[in-house]
Design a protein around this nucleic acid. Structure first.
Lengths: 258, 258
DNA sequence: CGGAAATTTGAAATCGCTCAATGATAGTGG
DNA sequence: CCACTATCATTGAGCGATTTCAAATTTCCG
């Protein structure tokens, strides 16, 4: 299963071979990172974005001055560093959480992507809005919930995205986040995260053996978190025919897929 | 000053008359709302997005189940409800904070916009990424800062965006948010917001007379908030030539403006 | 095997919450 | 224009969830 990322990429539209070729064309090179290596540093000039092929990446802000806030856990198929396209200096700090493979995309090749595969560009727009919704939910979690609910919320969210990529994992996650990082994501202290994990285990909702995390009662965890359960638009009709390149219009439609 | 919104719309590219015409074409109708009126309701089917012409609008999630989190304060020139394009059911709840004028844009006309004004569509993509950065900063504020810092942060952020629209306001804001709403934005209680406002006033950083809020020491407020001070890309060169419609390519370039 | 990083646990401090009551303000209809 | 009423702002007292500080233990990695 090496094309895990394709599932995520196909969430809103199934890319045509042409569109995938354009994406390939936009990429400059493939890079590997080890756990804790910095992929892109907050404050540096904005030069590229990254397509995550394999591994987990954390996005964060505020590491420079004061405390660090984890804003996103990127999984295979996600584009990391995209928020930086609106900035003159990098806002989102990217660090590998385990062994990571990314394809770098120079930022000045993005127009190419929009020009040669407009429907794909359109899809990137919708994906950006989806990321906003996820960020809004993350904000609601940190702003409105108790500690234990925030932790449950994070577990359920990551597990949901992960099992969309690899349904066969079941309830087990190879969890690469230190408790310190979970704290930075939830707006709590690592000490309190430790106690919260303990409480969840005591309640029989999770089990931990080293790096291995098992969600014993997914339903109860979700209920505890009190998440809204989002339904993202699947292959929306208005997007399927959006931004088709003119040369494609004359021939067969590019959105025949699915 | 009725075209306040144009300043915001011109942040990344100055739209050409053609592009503005396409935007007008996408709009269906203009609507007025009074304070506290609901513009778009969480959970309803996604049908339109809104271009905010005048007034303030709050975006929120979680009003349905449990506690409400304010995710964004929209000001003139902002597109509200955009995150919903990724959803099958509305995620972002929109409420007028004062007398509001919006132009509704049916969601199925968005492709039109991307097709007929690709550069403008490109700009919408960048704007979405900018919103992500602002959301990330909001999250960092709620997750990492003390109560008084969160309040200061909100004041500074809104003032900054407001004075980009109307520099002549100086340090005075006609503040339409109840303390309850400030609480929902900062992840605190209205009681504690009240005490925080009191503390800020006692320190001589703000003054309040009814709805009128004066930021007496903007610099100290910003320092208290400890904000990163974001520099958004101004008229980035890669965007200026992005996604020009093919018919424009043959003639004069559409990005001559600025 | 050694050293650094991460986890775990306890005790005390505190920031912000809850509950509750009073005062001010603004919108509404007579 | 004023009385009426609901919403909003303000203040106090006590409580509690989470933090802070500190130390012991375990795990991970070279």
């Amino acid at each position: 299963m090496d094309d895990m990322w394709l599932r995520r990429l196909s969430e809103f539209i199934v890319p045509t071979p042409d569109e995938l070729a354009v994406l390939e064309e936009a990429k400059s090179d493939r890079r590997e990172f080890k756990r804790n290596e910095v992929i892109s540093s907050e404050g540096s000039p904005v030069q590229e974005v990254y397509f995550l092929v394999d591994g987990w990446v954390e996005g964060s802000v505020g590491g420079d001055f004061g405390r660090k806030q984890l804003t996103k856990i990127y999984l295979p198929g996600d584009f990391a560093g995209m928020p930086n396209v609106a900035m003159s200096r990098t806002a989102e700090h990217l660090v590998a959480l385990n062994q990571v493979t990314v394809d770098a995309i120079p930022i000045d090749r993005l127009p190419l992507l929009f020009e040669k595969a407009p429907r794909f560009g359109c899809m990137l727009f919708v994906t950006a809005q989806q990321e906003r919704v996820m960020l809004m939910d993350h904000l609601a979690t940190v702003g409105q919930l108790r500690a234990i609910q925030r932790v449950a919320s994070l577990l359920v969210e990551v597990h949901g995205r992960l099992s969309a990529l690899r349904p066969e994992i079941g309830n087990v996650i190879d969890w690469p986040l230190s408790q310190e990082r979970v704290a930075q994501s939830t707006g709590l202290t690592s000490v309190h995260i430790n106690r919260s994990f303990g409480e969840l285990a005591r309640r029989g909702l999770i089990a931990r053996e080293g790096r291995r995390m098992t969600l014993l009662d997914l339903e109860q965890l979700a209920e505890l978190a009190g998440l809204p359960e989002r339904h993202f638009a699947q292959q929306p009709s208005w997007l399927a025919t959006c931004c088709l390149p003119r040369e494609h219009r004359r021939g067969r439609h590019a959105d025949k897929a699915l």
